[in-house]
Design a protein around this nucleic acid. Structure first.
Lengths: 347, 347
DNA sequence: TGTTAGCACTCCATTTAATCGAGTGCTAAC
DNA sequence: GTTAGCACTCGATTAAATGGAGTGCTAACA
């Protein structure tokens, strides 16, 4: 048996209807719902076929049909029309916070949760090419010195160092020059032992400071690697009865508490080809999810890019019967806007 | 009617038992539970009295008794024995992250959630005396300059500034001197218009850079004022059936999503006297909570101090029948440890 | 006067039975 | 190939029956 056009239309009608109501869909409903002008009996026959093919199931004998994962998959792959979404104020969110990345992400993920009414998450962008751009050491007071480290993509980190003996201004200037001539533009992997010892030699009696700074650089990099994940709208799961029962809710809320695992979930698979906005969007339906705790959810992920090789992932989590058209549309639009704002900086 | 010793003992027994089981406790249970050697009939009489006095109620006619808010309040005020807690690894958490305040708070709140099995929250410390300690402007590349601002308490902030025309090294040095002589040690409120215009005059043709930096300072301060709240262990509410039903859970999870409101809840009332650890701990039982959404919860808050006037609040949220002894003990111990680590820095 | 045994009573929780209705599959006619 | 008709299924909802934990009250006792 194969999928002909009429079956597809019926399947589509079932899914559309189920997305809206969350109730199993009966043959009579479809008969009226579509412009096919077929009686419920005919629909029933077709539905039996669709069930046999694995696109829909009955929760129990005398109920209507609901889509299976395979049914949703078919819908998403061949029938979905990702509509560009409005996303009115998002541009403000993105612009407003440009220089406080963290705040921007928090705002963004919150905005998305509010807009879509699903739970949302976003990973802080991680630097692809981990290059140092600039290192600076300054005196804060007698015994504390501040190391500021700027990486490619304008990721800024600081670290306060305790230093035994004071350093005079001139030496400080020299140390800074030493640091920058050696480290600027350097990829993190290239900083090796011989380099470090060379620098120490040059620093002479202040070699301990240099090694402090280099330690700081190392830590800062490491810090950047266990990536931050921000979430919002977890309370939205209570909007969908199929997720709101104690069992499910508890599991999901727990999952959202474990940012680290969430991160893995998001970064696990990005291997989609293509450039520019509108690509890198993936849909995971129910059992397709890597995590057991998400087995009753669908997750839509999108990679985003802030220029300079800064890449992260956005995830939207809802029930299986999530409004795929809207969510994918929203993410596409968002990608476009991000590209508008950050893309042109690249030149 | 008044509270005599026997009534207090019975009330205590009722509460202790209810804290453990979560089930209404009957007269027979108490008769066996305590060392009073009284028959259940006698206990029944006393319980009727306690009910009349408002310390306990029956959920329905033929059920045992459960404590009222007033009952818990009496317990907390007069019978609780806050036991010092073990808190094995917390010292590691506190030390390990000393220079990344944010990470430390996140770890801490997570640790507490795991230890207590309740939901936890913590506000980032806000600076009491908002003094600038150090300001530095450095060149990152041709058109971007980095302003680093260090405040009393070693709160470090950076901001990237776009600058039209390049500035040579010497000028940069001068600007930095200007900034520091004028701003260092200055309280934020003291920076007024006349000061700003004076600095601008001195900066001459680079006055726009100065005003950029001052703007940055302003923003950074403002940023610090809408205080961050970190939460953890919200999934713990599902451990307590009385909070885990859909209605309650949804409301609570929503409350925890609204960090801003949570913040108000925590900072609303601190007006407790006393110095040093072991003070500033407050217990809000059920309806005593300011927020309607917490009406079925108890909240224990504690202020903490990191030295240098850096103060924040910790909150632990659980069911009414929370283990007050343990929670208060935990917070006291934590305060002591924090004092050990950060307290002596003050000298 | 305080304590206790005994007993009737209440009310929730749980189980069991009864009813309803949406939706199906199948058959036979068009 | 389509459709009307009908018997059938099965979850959901409502109603009734049962059991038991715990009470309040009374009367007897120290």
């Amino acid at each position: 048996m194969e999928m002909d056009e009429r079956k597809a239309k019926i399947l589509q009608a079932i899914i559309r209807n189920y997305l809206e109501t969350g109730e199993p869909v009966g043959s009579r409903t479809i008969s009226k719902y579509t412009d096919l002008n077929l009686s419920s009996a005919t629909i029933r026959n077709e539905m039996a076929d669709l069930e046999e093919m694995g696109y829909i199931v009955q929760p129990h004998t005398s109920a209507g049909r609901i889509p299976t994962d395979k049914g949703y998959r078919f819908y998403v792959d061949t029938m979905m029309e990702a509509k560009e979404q409005e996303l009115a104020e998002v541009k403000d969110v993105l612009l407003q916070r440009q220089d406080r990345l963290e705040d921007m992400l928090r705002s963004l993920v919150k905005y998305l949760a509010k807009d879509t009414q699903y739970a949302t998450m976003i990973t802080a962008p991680s630097v692809q090419k981990n290059r140092l751009k600039f290192v600076q050491l300054s005196r804060v007071d007698e015994h504390s010195y501040l190391a500021v480290i700027v990486m490619e993509g304008n990721i800024i980190k600081n670290r306060l160092l305790a230093v035994e003996e004071a350093v005079d201004d001139e030496t400080l200037l020299k140390l800074n020059m030493l640091l920058n001539t050696q480290l600027s533009g350097m990829a993190v992997q290239e900083i090796n032992l011989s380099m470090i010892s060379r620098m120490k030699t040059q620093a002479g009696i202040h070699s301990d400071i240099i090694s402090n700074v280099i330690d700081a650089v190392g830590e800062v990099i490491a810090e950047d690697e266990d990536l931050q994940v921000y979430t919002s709208g977890t309370d939205n799961i209570f909007r969908y009865p199929e997720l709101a029962d104690q069992q499910n809710a508890s599991q999901l809320i727990s999952a959202f508490e474990e940012k680290q695992l969430l991160g893995n979930l998001l970064t696990g698979e990005t291997g989609e080809d293509g450039e520019g906005p509108g690509t890198g969007i993936q849909v995971y339906i129910g059992g397709e999810n890597a995590s057991q705790s998400m087995k009753d959810c669908s997750v839509v992920t999108a990679t985003y890019e802030l220029g300079d090789g800064l890449r992260g992932t956005i995830g939207i989590v809802g029930p299986r019967r999530m409004d795929y058209d809207k969510v994918v549309g929203t993410l596409k639009t968002l990608q476009t806007k991000l590209d508008d704002i950050y893309g042109r900086k690249e030149e």
